[in-house]
Amino acid sequence: MSKAKMKRTLISVLKYITLILGGFISVLPIVVCVITAFKTPEEYASTNVMTLPKNWFYFENFIQAWSQANMGVAFRNSIIILVFVLAGSILTGSMLAYVLSRFKFKGNGFIRNLFLFASLLPGIAMQVSVYQIMYSLGWINFLPGYIIMMCGTDIISIYIFIQFFENIPDSLDESAIMDGCTYFGVFFRILFPLLKPAIVTVMILKGVSVYNEYYTANLYLQDKNRLVTVATSLFKFTGPLGNQYNYICAGVIITMVPALIVFILCQKQIYGGLAAGAVKG
């Protein structure tokens, strides 16, 4: 019996060791960044990267990074993009999902397949020719154009909405129609308010990807003085500033703060949203 008990403790010790190791590896690269972001240039030049800074209240690097990378403008633009893209894609996505899940009509399956096939096309590859379209529309360096493009490239949220609609009983719509409600009324007055959990899920999944999007932002918002986003603001550090890691790390930490806050506040929803998105594939 004591042997079995020993074995069990050994296993749980091993479990904790792997967990600690996993946690350590996950945070180490970030923690080192935090350490470096608080070092004075002399400290940065003279001490090992793992040495803790002498003064944890040395914010000069953050101030430098903020102004050099134009982060005030970057945050403003990112917030504008986030608000409009989320509003746009939630509205259009849920409307489309409503039509596809509630009405049987010719072409329903065809449209579903159009969206399904579109999800197979790798986004990066498509930008080769999307760029040409954006160019001929005159939407390079045009924030509303970028926002519209970002609304259009979303398939996962439509599927989350469809899945959600299929769990709301049809009888709800039917009784509303009986009471003289139009189909528009059914959607806006009855179903849309019920969608809240799905909307939260989509906001999180889509929000993370929009906030972090830098490839298309870099491609279509090239005017870096006016149209920089939080993700692209970091590009400032690629040129001659390429090895001033005390500034770079400060910049990286600044971009991470909003993500960290959202993560701490909505941990449950984020986990739930990911699990829900995964079940659908």
């Binding site: 690269p29 970030i30 080192v32 960044c33 972090n212 970091l234 550090f237 910049g251 993500a259 960290l260």
Partner: peptide
């Protein structure tokens, strides 16, 4: 939480973090 958080870091920031991480004599 610790193991999940890297997923929320933006791609370009991941790039810088690891350039720094792998630099000779660094992390």
């Amino acid at each position: 939480g610790l193991m999940f958080f890297p997923y929320l870091v933006c791609g370009i920031a991941v790039g810088f973090i690891f350039k720094f991480f792998y630099t000779r004599g660094f992390v």
